[in-house]
Amino acid sequence: MSLGYLFGGGVGTEPHGLELYRTYEVVQSWYEQVAAWTGLTVGQILEEDLPTAQEERQSVGTVREAALAIGVHDVLASFNLRPAAIGGLSLGAMTASCLAGSLGRRELFEMLASSRDTPEPSADDPQQGIAIAFSSLADGDGSHPADGAPSYPGEHVPGVHLAGDFGPTADGTKRIMMLAGHAEALGALAAEVPPGTVVPLPGRTIAVHTPLRRPYRDFMAPRIDAIPFADPEIPLLSCLEPKVLRTAADVRDLFQRNSTDPISLVDVYTGMKEQGVQLGLVMGPSIPEGILAFPFPVVHIERPEHIEQALTTAYDLGIDLSGAPVLS
Protein backbone atom coordinates (compact mmCIF):
# COMPACT_ATOMS: atom_id res chain seq x y z
CA MET A 1 0.00 0.00 0.00
CA SER A 2 1.55 3.29 -1.01
CA LEU A 3 0.91 6.99 -1.37
CA GLY A 4 0.72 9.00 -4.56
CA TYR A 5 0.91 12.79 -4.67
CA LEU A 6 -1.12 14.57 -7.35
CA PHE A 7 -0.63 18.17 -8.39
CA GLY A 8 -3.18 20.06 -10.46
CA GLY A 9 -2.66 22.61 -13.16
CA GLY A 10 -3.92 26.06 -13.84
CA VAL A 11 -3.44 29.33 -12.11
CA GLY A 12 -5.95 30.32 -9.51
CA THR A 13 -6.69 33.98 -9.09
CA GLU A 14 -7.97 33.57 -5.53
CA PRO A 15 -5.69 33.58 -2.47
CA HIS A 16 -4.84 30.02 -1.48
CA GLY A 17 -3.04 28.56 1.50
CA LEU A 18 -3.55 31.32 4.05
CA GLU A 19 -4.66 28.92 6.77
CA LEU A 20 -1.75 26.57 6.16
CA TYR A 21 0.66 29.51 6.20
CA ARG A 22 -0.71 30.73 9.52
CA THR A 23 -0.68 27.26 11.08
CA TYR A 24 2.64 25.76 10.13
CA GLU A 25 6.08 27.30 10.65
CA VAL A 26 7.47 25.07 7.94
CA VAL A 27 5.14 26.79 5.45
CA GLN A 28 6.09 30.25 6.70
CA SER A 29 9.79 29.65 6.26
CA TRP A 30 9.14 28.05 2.88
CA TYR A 31 7.25 31.12 1.59
CA GLU A 32 10.07 33.37 2.79
CA GLN A 33 12.49 31.24 0.80
CA VAL A 34 10.30 31.45 -2.32
CA ALA A 35 10.10 35.22 -1.88
CA ALA A 36 13.89 35.44 -1.77
CA TRP A 37 14.24 33.41 -4.97
CA THR A 38 11.52 35.11 -6.98
CA GLY A 39 11.75 38.74 -5.90
CA LEU A 40 8.09 38.68 -4.93
CA THR A 41 6.88 39.45 -1.41
CA VAL A 42 5.24 36.79 0.74
CA GLY A 43 2.04 38.82 0.46
CA GLN A 44 2.21 38.77 -3.34
CA ILE A 45 2.77 35.05 -3.35
CA LEU A 46 0.08 34.34 -0.82
CA GLU A 47 -2.88 36.62 -1.21
CA GLU A 48 -2.50 39.93 -3.02
CA ASP A 49 -4.23 40.60 -6.33
CA LEU A 50 -2.35 39.22 -9.29
CA PRO A 51 -0.83 41.65 -11.83
CA THR A 52 -3.04 42.54 -14.75
CA ALA A 53 -0.58 42.02 -17.63
CA GLN A 54 -1.23 38.57 -19.09
CA GLU A 55 2.17 36.88 -18.89
CA GLU A 56 3.17 38.57 -15.61
CA ARG A 57 -0.14 37.52 -14.11
CA GLN A 58 0.44 33.95 -15.30
CA SER A 59 3.95 33.98 -13.83
CA VAL A 60 2.95 35.17 -10.34
CA GLY A 61 -0.03 32.83 -10.39
CA THR A 62 2.20 29.84 -11.09
CA VAL A 63 4.53 30.84 -8.25
CA ARG A 64 1.49 31.04 -5.94
CA GLU A 65 0.20 27.61 -6.91
CA ALA A 66 3.57 25.85 -6.84
CA ALA A 67 4.52 27.44 -3.52
CA LEU A 68 1.34 26.17 -1.90
CA ALA A 69 1.68 22.68 -3.37
CA ILE A 70 5.24 22.30 -2.10
CA GLY A 71 4.21 23.82 1.23
CA VAL A 72 1.59 21.08 1.59
CA HIS A 73 4.24 18.51 0.72
CA ASP A 74 6.54 19.91 3.40
CA VAL A 75 3.85 19.80 6.07
CA LEU A 76 3.14 16.16 5.23
CA ALA A 77 6.86 15.40 5.24
CA SER A 78 7.06 16.85 8.75
CA PHE A 79 4.68 14.05 9.74
CA ASN A 80 6.80 11.49 7.87
CA LEU A 81 4.38 11.15 4.95
CA ARG A 82 6.16 10.81 1.64
CA PRO A 83 4.97 9.66 -1.75
CA ALA A 84 5.95 6.46 -3.50
CA ALA A 85 4.86 7.93 -6.85
CA ILE A 86 4.19 11.47 -7.94
CA GLY A 87 2.72 13.34 -10.87
CA GLY A 88 0.76 16.36 -11.93
CA LEU A 89 -0.89 18.34 -14.66
CA SER A 90 0.71 21.27 -16.44
CA LEU A 91 2.32 23.39 -13.70
CA GLY A 92 1.68 20.48 -11.37
CA ALA A 93 3.84 18.26 -13.56
CA MET A 94 6.75 20.63 -13.03
CA THR A 95 6.13 20.82 -9.29
CA ALA A 96 6.01 17.03 -9.14
CA SER A 97 9.27 16.81 -11.08
CA CYS A 98 10.89 19.08 -8.54
CA LEU A 99 9.69 17.02 -5.59
CA ALA A 100 10.83 13.86 -7.35
CA GLY A 101 14.33 15.30 -7.18
CA SER A 102 14.68 16.07 -10.87
CA LEU A 103 15.42 19.74 -10.42
CA GLY A 104 16.09 22.01 -7.51
CA ARG A 105 13.39 24.09 -5.93
CA ARG A 106 15.34 27.24 -6.64
CA GLU A 107 15.64 26.38 -10.32
CA LEU A 108 11.90 25.74 -10.54
CA PHE A 109 10.91 29.02 -8.94
CA GLU A 110 13.47 31.08 -10.80
CA MET A 111 12.13 29.58 -14.02
CA LEU A 112 8.54 30.39 -13.06
CA ALA A 113 9.50 33.92 -12.05
CA SER A 114 11.46 34.48 -15.26
CA SER A 115 8.42 33.63 -17.36
CA ARG A 116 7.04 37.07 -16.45
CA ASP A 117 9.44 38.41 -19.10
CA THR A 118 7.64 36.51 -21.86
CA PRO A 119 6.67 39.10 -24.49
CA GLU A 120 3.02 40.04 -24.17
CA PRO A 121 0.91 39.13 -27.22
CA SER A 122 0.25 41.82 -29.78
CA ALA A 123 -3.01 43.67 -29.47
CA ASP A 124 -3.74 42.58 -33.07
CA ASP A 125 -3.50 38.88 -32.27
CA PRO A 126 -6.81 37.00 -32.08
CA GLN A 127 -7.96 36.73 -28.50
CA GLN A 128 -7.36 33.35 -26.91
CA GLY A 129 -9.48 31.48 -24.43
CA ILE A 130 -10.23 28.30 -22.52
CA ALA A 131 -13.44 26.33 -22.12
CA ILE A 132 -14.48 23.29 -20.12
CA ALA A 133 -16.30 20.67 -22.21
CA PHE A 134 -18.47 17.77 -21.15
CA SER A 135 -19.21 14.64 -23.14
CA SER A 136 -21.78 12.06 -22.14
CA LEU A 137 -20.53 8.61 -21.16
CA ALA A 138 -23.92 7.04 -21.80
CA ASP A 139 -22.66 5.36 -24.96
CA GLY A 140 -19.11 4.44 -23.94
CA ASP A 141 -16.04 5.90 -22.29
CA GLY A 142 -15.92 9.04 -24.41
CA SER A 143 -12.96 7.97 -26.48
CA HIS A 144 -12.38 7.02 -30.09
CA PRO A 145 -12.40 3.23 -30.53
CA ALA A 146 -9.47 3.36 -32.92
CA ASP A 147 -6.84 5.02 -30.74
CA GLY A 148 -8.49 5.63 -27.36
CA ALA A 149 -8.11 9.41 -27.74
CA PRO A 150 -10.91 11.38 -26.10
CA SER A 151 -13.67 12.56 -28.39
CA TYR A 152 -14.74 16.12 -27.68
CA PRO A 153 -17.15 18.79 -28.86
CA GLY A 154 -15.67 20.91 -31.64
CA GLU A 155 -13.24 18.22 -32.65
CA HIS A 156 -12.93 19.48 -36.22
CA VAL A 157 -13.60 23.16 -35.62
CA PRO A 158 -10.71 25.41 -36.71
CA GLY A 159 -9.23 27.33 -33.79
CA VAL A 160 -10.49 24.82 -31.19
CA HIS A 161 -7.98 22.40 -29.64
CA LEU A 162 -8.22 19.66 -27.05
CA ALA A 163 -6.00 21.00 -24.27
CA GLY A 164 -6.73 18.59 -21.45
CA ASP A 165 -8.54 15.41 -20.46
CA PHE A 166 -9.68 15.18 -16.86
CA GLY A 167 -11.43 11.84 -17.33
CA PRO A 168 -14.83 10.69 -16.05
CA THR A 169 -16.81 12.56 -13.42
CA ALA A 170 -17.34 11.05 -9.98
CA ASP A 171 -20.89 10.03 -10.88
CA GLY A 172 -19.68 8.34 -14.05
CA THR A 173 -22.08 10.21 -16.31
CA LYS A 174 -19.70 12.55 -18.14
CA ARG A 175 -16.13 13.01 -19.21
CA ILE A 176 -14.61 16.43 -18.57
CA MET A 177 -12.14 18.01 -20.97
CA MET A 178 -10.50 21.35 -21.46
CA LEU A 179 -10.64 23.06 -24.81
CA ALA A 180 -8.45 26.01 -25.72
CA GLY A 181 -7.87 28.14 -28.75
CA HIS A 182 -9.31 31.25 -30.30
CA ALA A 183 -11.88 32.80 -28.00
CA GLU A 184 -14.21 33.58 -30.88
CA ALA A 185 -14.22 29.98 -32.08
CA LEU A 186 -14.81 28.69 -28.57
CA GLY A 187 -17.68 31.12 -28.06
CA ALA A 188 -19.27 30.11 -31.34
CA LEU A 189 -18.91 26.44 -30.45
CA ALA A 190 -20.51 27.01 -27.03
CA ALA A 191 -23.49 28.67 -28.73
CA GLU A 192 -23.86 25.88 -31.27
CA VAL A 193 -23.78 22.80 -29.02
CA PRO A 194 -26.42 21.89 -26.39
CA PRO A 195 -26.32 24.32 -23.44
CA GLY A 196 -23.76 23.37 -20.81
CA THR A 197 -21.73 21.18 -23.13
CA VAL A 198 -19.00 23.78 -23.68
CA VAL A 199 -18.49 26.45 -21.02
CA PRO A 200 -15.96 29.23 -21.83
CA LEU A 201 -14.02 30.37 -18.74
CA PRO A 202 -14.21 34.13 -18.28
CA GLY A 203 -10.93 35.99 -17.90
CA ARG A 204 -8.79 33.10 -19.17
CA THR A 205 -6.97 34.59 -22.11
CA ILE A 206 -4.15 32.10 -22.69
CA ALA A 207 -4.80 29.07 -24.91
CA VAL A 208 -2.76 26.75 -22.71
CA HIS A 209 -1.56 23.38 -23.99
CA THR A 210 -2.19 24.19 -27.62
CA PRO A 211 0.05 25.14 -30.55
CA LEU A 212 -0.97 28.75 -29.91
CA ARG A 213 1.47 28.75 -26.98
CA ARG A 214 4.43 28.27 -29.31
CA PRO A 215 5.83 31.79 -28.65
CA TYR A 216 5.91 31.10 -24.92
CA ARG A 217 7.51 27.71 -25.50
CA ASP A 218 10.20 29.22 -27.70
CA PHE A 219 10.87 31.99 -25.18
CA MET A 220 11.26 29.52 -22.31
CA ALA A 221 13.22 26.88 -24.24
CA PRO A 222 16.73 28.24 -23.52
CA ARG A 223 15.88 28.79 -19.89
CA ILE A 224 14.70 25.19 -19.57
CA ASP A 225 17.78 23.99 -21.41
CA ALA A 226 19.91 25.73 -18.82
CA ILE A 227 18.35 23.85 -15.92
CA PRO A 228 20.48 20.94 -14.64
CA PHE A 229 17.89 18.15 -14.55
CA ALA A 230 18.56 14.86 -12.75
CA ASP A 231 16.92 11.47 -12.96
CA PRO A 232 13.75 11.32 -10.81
CA GLU A 233 14.25 9.52 -7.50
CA ILE A 234 10.75 8.04 -7.45
CA PRO A 235 8.30 7.12 -10.23
CA LEU A 236 7.24 10.38 -11.89
CA LEU A 237 4.15 10.16 -14.10
CA SER A 238 3.90 12.19 -17.27
CA CYS A 239 0.77 14.17 -18.06
CA LEU A 240 1.59 14.32 -21.76
CA GLU A 241 1.40 10.59 -22.50
CA PRO A 242 1.06 7.29 -20.60
CA LYS A 243 4.65 7.13 -19.36
CA VAL A 244 6.84 6.97 -16.28
CA LEU A 245 9.58 9.56 -16.57
CA ARG A 246 12.79 7.86 -15.52
CA THR A 247 15.61 10.07 -16.80
CA ALA A 248 16.69 13.69 -16.71
CA ALA A 249 16.12 13.83 -20.47
CA ASP A 250 12.55 12.61 -20.01
CA VAL A 251 11.86 15.41 -17.55
CA ARG A 252 13.51 18.06 -19.70
CA ASP A 253 11.34 16.93 -22.61
CA LEU A 254 8.23 17.26 -20.43
CA PHE A 255 9.18 20.80 -19.47
CA GLN A 256 9.80 21.77 -23.09
CA ARG A 257 6.54 20.36 -24.44
CA ASN A 258 4.33 21.16 -21.48
CA SER A 259 3.06 24.50 -22.75
CA THR A 260 1.95 23.33 -26.21
CA ASP A 261 0.89 19.69 -25.75
CA PRO A 262 -2.44 18.52 -24.33
CA ILE A 263 -2.45 17.19 -20.78
CA SER A 264 -4.22 14.14 -19.36
CA LEU A 265 -5.09 13.50 -15.75
CA VAL A 266 -6.12 10.01 -16.83
CA ASP A 267 -2.54 9.27 -17.88
CA VAL A 268 -1.28 10.45 -14.50
CA TYR A 269 -3.67 8.52 -12.28
CA THR A 270 -3.62 5.40 -14.42
CA GLY A 271 0.16 5.41 -14.23
CA MET A 272 0.03 5.86 -10.48
CA LYS A 273 -2.35 2.96 -10.17
CA GLU A 274 0.09 0.81 -12.12
CA GLN A 275 2.83 1.90 -9.71
CA GLY A 276 0.79 0.51 -6.80
CA VAL A 277 -0.63 3.76 -5.46
CA GLN A 278 -3.56 3.05 -3.16
CA LEU A 279 -4.16 6.48 -1.68
CA GLY A 280 -3.84 9.72 -3.61
CA LEU A 281 -3.20 13.03 -1.90
CA VAL A 282 -4.17 16.01 -4.03
CA MET A 283 -1.90 18.90 -3.12
CA GLY A 284 -3.58 22.28 -3.01
CA PRO A 285 -6.91 23.34 -4.47
CA SER A 286 -6.11 22.97 -8.15
CA ILE A 287 -8.04 19.71 -8.58
CA PRO A 288 -11.34 20.40 -6.81
CA GLU A 289 -12.79 17.77 -4.51
CA GLY A 290 -15.71 15.56 -5.40
CA ILE A 291 -15.90 16.22 -9.15
CA LEU A 292 -13.70 13.58 -10.73
CA ALA A 293 -13.40 9.80 -10.50
CA PHE A 294 -10.05 8.37 -9.41
CA PRO A 295 -8.99 4.73 -9.45
CA PHE A 296 -8.00 4.95 -5.77
CA PRO A 297 -9.25 6.90 -2.73
CA VAL A 298 -8.08 10.51 -2.68
CA VAL A 299 -7.82 13.20 -0.03
CA HIS A 300 -7.65 16.83 -1.10
CA ILE A 301 -5.38 19.04 0.99
CA GLU A 302 -5.64 22.78 1.05
CA ARG A 303 -6.39 23.63 4.67
CA PRO A 304 -4.92 22.49 8.01
CA GLU A 305 -7.82 20.16 8.82
CA HIS A 306 -7.11 18.27 5.61
CA ILE A 307 -3.68 17.34 6.94
CA GLU A 308 -5.37 15.45 9.77
CA GLN A 309 -7.75 13.90 7.27
CA ALA A 310 -4.83 12.71 5.15
CA LEU A 311 -3.05 11.22 8.16
CA THR A 312 -6.24 9.52 9.32
CA THR A 313 -6.99 8.09 5.89
CA ALA A 314 -3.44 6.85 5.52
CA TYR A 315 -3.82 5.11 8.86
CA ASP A 316 -7.26 3.68 8.04
CA LEU A 317 -6.05 2.27 4.73
CA GLY A 318 -2.98 0.80 6.37
CA ILE A 319 -0.61 2.72 4.12
CA ASP A 320 3.00 1.68 4.64
CA LEU A 321 4.91 4.87 5.29
CA SER A 322 8.08 3.27 6.50
CA GLY A 323 9.64 2.43 3.15
CA ALA A 324 9.04 5.66 1.23
CA PRO A 325 12.24 7.33 0.10
CA VAL A 326 13.36 10.62 1.56
CA LEU A 327 13.04 13.37 -1.00
CA SER A 328 15.22 16.38 -1.41
Binding site: G8, F166, V199, L201, V208, S286, P288, E289, I291, H300
Partner: peptide, 14 residues
Protein backbone atom coordinates in the same frame (compact mmCIF):
# COMPACT_ATOMS: atom_id res chain seq x y z
CA UNK B 1 -16.15 5.67 0.94
CA UNK B 2 -15.75 8.75 3.13
CA UNK B 3 -18.08 11.50 1.94
CA UNK B 4 -16.65 13.91 -0.60
CA UNK B 5 -18.52 17.13 -1.29
CA UNK B 6 -17.70 19.05 -4.46
CA UNK B 7 -16.21 22.34 -3.26
CA UNK B 8 -16.03 23.91 -6.68
CA UNK B 9 -17.65 23.67 -10.06
CA UNK B 10 -15.86 21.80 -12.87
CA UNK B 11 -14.80 25.21 -14.15
CA UNK B 12 -12.33 25.25 -11.26
CA UNK B 13 -10.38 22.39 -12.76
CA UNK B 14 -7.90 24.69 -14.46
Amino acid sequence: RPLQIANSSPEGLY
